[in-house]
Design a protein around this nucleic acid. Structure first.
Lengths: 343, 343
DNA sequence: ATTAGCACTCTCCCTATGAGAGTGCTAATA
DNA sequence: TATTAGCACTCTCATAGGGAGAGTGCTAAT
């Protein structure tokens, strides 16, 4: 069924009122607050139709209406008016970012910013590296028999890993290895996911049979074995959940808390949305995760030097101020892109 | 007032029963479950005295009794029977640790182990480094104008920091700097907290006036400027809180969640307890933090190569199985010490 | 097509009530 | 003198009833 203009107006009014008060919205409230010049009976009739078409629902027969996930979706796709951040707010965000000089710090600040500005949970997915080209590899001996491997990618991301070696690998040997590897890296673009395969193949040609089965080979294998699946997630503002009446009952809270606890799952979810559109909105049951039933997730990709790198977002109850959530998320992702590109 | 033997027995019984059922303990329950060969009236009388002396309290006049913080404290200090982990459990812990080959991984696993074994929140305070001696400093150029500074301490801890340099610092220059610094470090023990002062003083003597006010000097200043206050904390099992009836009401939960959210505060608290005893137990209001009112914290220090490094612990409701919490925390801290010393 | 009017439904809050659990006190007992 | 049986008392908790209020759906009138 196609919604007529009046139904759209009423749906938007219900979404707005419900967001503001967290109370089911009655026909009389719509009539009073939104000046539609319609009687409550007419509004009631339209709401009845909206309910029949799954845009609204009632907690019980004689209560006001609440938007369904479908109702929110229609609102987000067709009805909502874009929100623009105030210049003052923009300045504040920029001001805060000026303090962050390190990568880790920038990630943390971003999640804090998101949670403070939205009163929801701020989520930052660290840059995914599996599509990065390796530019440079360095070996730094630290202490007695440990070697710090530093991998620098084309996006300027730095992966580090400390590897224990059973025997001693002397400095000349290390230099030889790193020179060889870096010359190969200069010759052709090697994706970080292929690092292990390609480089070990190349190395096999020059490493003597003897060494191939000893610690040098093992050492390198471990160095290149980077975990792509483990995508760090920065979360902030968990406590904000308590501010929302939908999480007053502990069992509702339980769901979302378990989602937040399993950062890997959250990371995987967000990662799954990467690459389609800059901004992505997932409302309630649209997500396959049952823990997200009562929640919405607004994510926005950020980039490093123009190349999509990761995503940030906010997580909160489906009853949220979508226009504002979107504008905040998008603005912050833009600023984060700038910061990270400068690093 | 000195507690007589019978009062002690009854107090221990109340603590045990309350831990098991989470219900206020009545005189008849004590009589039934703990076979003291006393009438309920007698038990009631002793409980009355225990209450008058602040070891027990009643939610209301005609309900059973619950231990107070003081009651738990007396129990922990004088009454509880040490718990020993089963060999099977020990083996499982060791088995899990075998998988962890990196520092970060070991930290995460430890917090997971703690939370899973105790059904509480697992807390791991990363090694504090402010009492470490600096053994070695390395500069690794990464990308165009960024330099990775690697500081290795006597405990084998590795601090890293990426510093952006405005101008270019060539490799020879970097080598010269690191050679100079490392020779100074070999000469005398320099604590990491003094790094900035001492080394910059030394460097002033050899760096030309011109350079002192340019990027080389600034660069080094930034390299040595390490944040000691930021002590990373690894938390796991937040969701476990929901299992405990004391956190059924959201306002109770609010308190502890806000504590967990502010990891810095938690870190500072635990850090404050370091250096006195291996194991430390903080019960409810014994902590100055109001967020910890309904919680107890059991911490145990771990060490690296015999030198106290950090602490692990569990955080849960005051109603907890103290003997078991203590044995788990202590055992895991021992194992963690072994693992970290091997790294 | 819209609306006024009205019966109906459901929640929420308040009160009352009774059962049950547990206590404190007292007088009897070993 | 220490212990205990007995009992009145207190408080919680679950249940039910009732009235107010909010909001609806339906119908007949405009």
């Amino acid at each position: 069924m196609e919604l007529n203009e009046r139904m759209k107006t009423i749906l938007a009014a219900v979404v707005h009122s419900y967001f503001t008060t967290a109370e089911p919205v009655s026909s009389s409230i719509i009539a009073q607050k939104y000046h539609l010049n319609l009687s409550t009976a007419t509004i009631r009739h339209e709401m009845y139709l909206l309910e029949k078409n799954d845009y609204l629902w009632q907690p019980h027969t004689s209560s006001g209406r609440i938007p369904t996930d479908k109702g929110y979706r229609f609102y987000v796709d067709n009805l909502m008016v874009k929100n623009y951040l105030q210049e003052k707010e923009k300045r504040e965000i920029i001001q805060i970012y000026k303090k962050s000089k390190e990568f880790e710090e920038a990630m943390k600040m971003t999640s804090q910013l998101l949670s403070k500005l939205t009163d929801n949970i701020g989520v930052v997915l660290a840059p995914v590296i599996y599509n990065n080209i390796v530019k440079e590899i360095q070996f730094v001996p630290v202490g007695y028999n440990r070697i710090l491997t530093v991998i620098v990618t084309d996006a300027g991301l730095v992966c580090q890993k400390i590897v224990n070696v059973s025997g001693e690998i002397n400095k000349d040997r290390l230099n030889y290895l790193s020179n060889f590897i870096n010359s190969k890296l200069a010759e052709k673009d090697i994706n970080i996911t292929n690092l292990n395969n390609i480089l070990l193949d190349e190395l096999e040609k020059i490493i003597s049979l003897q060494e191939r089965f000893n610690y040098v080979y093992n050492f390198l294998e471990e160095c290149f074995n980077i975990r792509y699946s483990e995508n760090k997630v920065y979360l902030d503002g968990r406590i904000n959940l308590m501010k929302h009446p939908e999480f007053k009952e502990t069992d509702k809270l339980n769901y979302i808390l378990s989602l937040i606890e399993e950062e890997n799952i959250l990371a995987a979810t967000i990662r799954g949305y990467l690459g389609f559109r800059k901004t992505k909105i997932i409302i309630g049951k649209e997500s396959k995760l049952k823990e997200m039933q009562n929640c919405s997730l607004v994510t926005s990709e950020y980039s490093i030097k123009g190349k999509s790198a990761g995503a940030i977002g906010i997580l909160g109850p489906t009853r949220m101020d979508y226009p504002r959530m979107i504008s905040i998320t998008e603005y912050i992702s833009d600023k984060l892109s700038e910061i990270l590109s400068e690093f």
